[in-house]
Simulated assay, not measured.
Amino acid sequence: MADRARRQQPRGAATRQRGRPVLTGRALVLGAIMVLLVVILASPITRYLGSRSDVSHAAAQLHADRTELHQLTRQKQRLADPGYIQQQARNTLQYAMPGDTVYVVVDKGAKSALASSSGGGKSTPPKGRAWNTRIWASVRSAGR
């Protein structure tokens, strides 16, 4: 009867019953070597991947810097041209050259800012105390 039971069991089951360990010495050594390799190679691989990332970031920064340098060089060349400076003064600062006729377009019913800023040629000093007297009075009243 024992012979029949052995014949019906699969072959792997019979070897386990005989006392053969599931984890052999070879498997243990192989596992230890794998763990050792992972521990030893983890740091260099991490540094390698980090340096590759740094190199790609540096390349992108270099490209951006070269583009900015090219734009600044073009701007420097434009600013060296007196005609460009004059054009910028006219457009940005709204300057007019001597002899130019300046037209100011004002909406219907609105006052021109040009008329209020010019003062109409009359300059009247403010009435009352002088400016320095008013400042000292405000300093004294703030100290109370």
Rank of each mutant, 00 (worst) to 15 (best):
D3T: 07
R4C: 15
R4W: 11
R4N: 14
Q8T: 07
G12R: 02
A13W: 13
A14Y: 06
Q17D: 08
Q17C: 08
R18W: 15
G19H: 06
R20E: 08
R20G: 14
G25N: 12
R26M: 14
A27T: 09
G31A: 12
L36Y: 05
V39A: 12
V39R: 04
I40R: 04
L41Y: 08
A42I: 10
Y48S: 11
L49G: 10
V55Q: 15
A58Y: 01
A59C: 15
A60F: 14
A60Y: 15
L62I: 02
R66A: 15
T67K: 12
T67C: 12
T67S: 12
E68F: 04
E68Q: 08
L69K: 02
L69T: 04
Q71Y: 12
L72I: 00
T73E: 07
R74C: 05
Q75R: 09
R78Q: 13
L79F: 03
D81Q: 06
P82S: 01
G83A: 11
Q86F: 09
Q87L: 12
Q88Y: 04
N91K: 12
Q94V: 01
Q94H: 04
Y95Q: 00
A96C: 03
M97F: 13
P98D: 01
G99V: 00
G99P: 00
V102I: 13
V104K: 06
V104F: 13
V105S: 05
V106H: 04
D107F: 04
K108M: 03
K108L: 11
K108F: 11
G109A: 08
A110H: 09
S112N: 06
L114T: 05
S116L: 11
S116Y: 02
S118L: 15
G119E: 07
G120I: 00
G120C: 04
G121I: 00
S123H: 15
P125C: 03
P126G: 02
P126T: 01
P126F: 04
P126N: 05
K127T: 06
R129W: 05
A130M: 03
W131F: 13
R134I: 08
W136F: 10
A137C: 10
A137P: 00
V139W: 10
V139Q: 02
S141T: 02
A142Q: 03
A142Y: 12
A142C: 05
G143Q: 06
G143E: 08
